[in-house]
Amino acid sequence: MPEQAPGPRDPAPSPTFPFQVGEPTEHRGIVVAPLFPTRDPLALYATLDDALARGFEITETGPDGAVPELAVSNPLDDAVLLYDGEELAGAKQNRILDVSVLVAAGSKLVVPVSCVERGRWRAVSRSFSSAGHVAHAQLRRMKTRALGAEPLARGAAQGAVWDSVDTRLEALDVASETRAHSDAFRAHRRRLDDLAAAFGVLPGQCGAVFGIGDTLCLDALSRPDAFAALWPKLRDGYLLDALDRLDRAPTRPERMLAFVDEVTEAAVTRGPAAGLGVDLRFRGPGVVGSGLELDGEVIQLSAFTVTAEAAEGRIARPSQRAR
């Protein structure tokens, strides 16, 4: 049986992050270092895109919908991992997942999300599809900081998310009638694809550390097969952040290693998850992050630097629904 989550935000010893850093790749000032597992994974789960093709469904919570929540139905015999920041397209407005959620086989639940398309509130489909990317790293960083000690609080990150979407659209000179995060990816699809060719996934890779200047992001999964499926979506989010910062001095390899050390040494709290497992939140002098643990195994991890540059833009107060 999955372990029971502790009480709200219990402090606890740091989990063991079973990853080792490989040789980085640099292209046009972007640096990506692969992570490899140091132990065999235990938990079994499918990724969102695979599950959607087999009958997994995400819909509005009802005819009227609710901006900070979506309904999930998993008819499969597999648990399904929904990754923190994955974008869902369709229904009444596009959303991103506020946290990683492990949805049990044969279960239904309601998951916390944030809107990334504030100018639309009308149905274009009954259910959601995958938007094909994870939110850009700066948005996820700001969302993680805004959620703080209450990661399941509905709507708590909405202001920060909208600010980050607007900032990226304006920085990349993207016109979007509905202020849609996905329009930034659509407008720069060719540039993203050209950059992506330099950063393939390696056999056995389970994660990556992304660096652009002094701003770093780490993402990891327990299963290399799941990471390989998710990598194109994560990579697009990384590269969207880099488009207006190309050809600058690359992140030094020793800085990337130091960042990984900061993640492993950060103070950790555990609390209830939205689905199976235990939600992890960690914070250090220069790092903030989140993860998901199941029966003592870290199955998902995301971490971000917190520097003056990374913290540009305010964290707005939670906002009400915009229609």
Rank of each mutant, 00 (worst) to 15 (best):
A156L: 15
T167F: 02
A157V: 07
E177D: 15
W162G: 14
L152M: 11
L147F: 01
R141T: 00
R168F: 03
G159R: 09
R141V: 00
G159Q: 10
G148S: 13
A160P: 04
A157G: 11
T144F: 00
T178F: 10
V174H: 09
V161Q: 10
D163H: 10
R145M: 13
K143W: 01
A171R: 14
G155W: 04
V174I: 13
L172S: 11
L152E: 05
Q158C: 15
E150L: 10
T178G: 13
D163N: 13
R154N: 00
L172P: 03
T144P: 00
V165C: 02
E170R: 14
A146I: 06
D173M: 10
D163M: 11
V161Y: 06
S176A: 15
D173H: 06
D173Q: 11
S164I: 04
W162Y: 09
G148C: 00
G148Y: 02
E170D: 15
A149F: 02
W162A: 13
E177N: 14
V174P: 10
V165P: 01
E177S: 15
A157I: 07
K143E: 12
K143D: 05
W162K: 11
L172A: 09
A153P: 00
A171S: 15
S176R: 09
A175V: 15
T178K: 12
R145H: 00
T144I: 01
P151W: 02
A153E: 05
A153C: 06
T178C: 12
G159I: 12
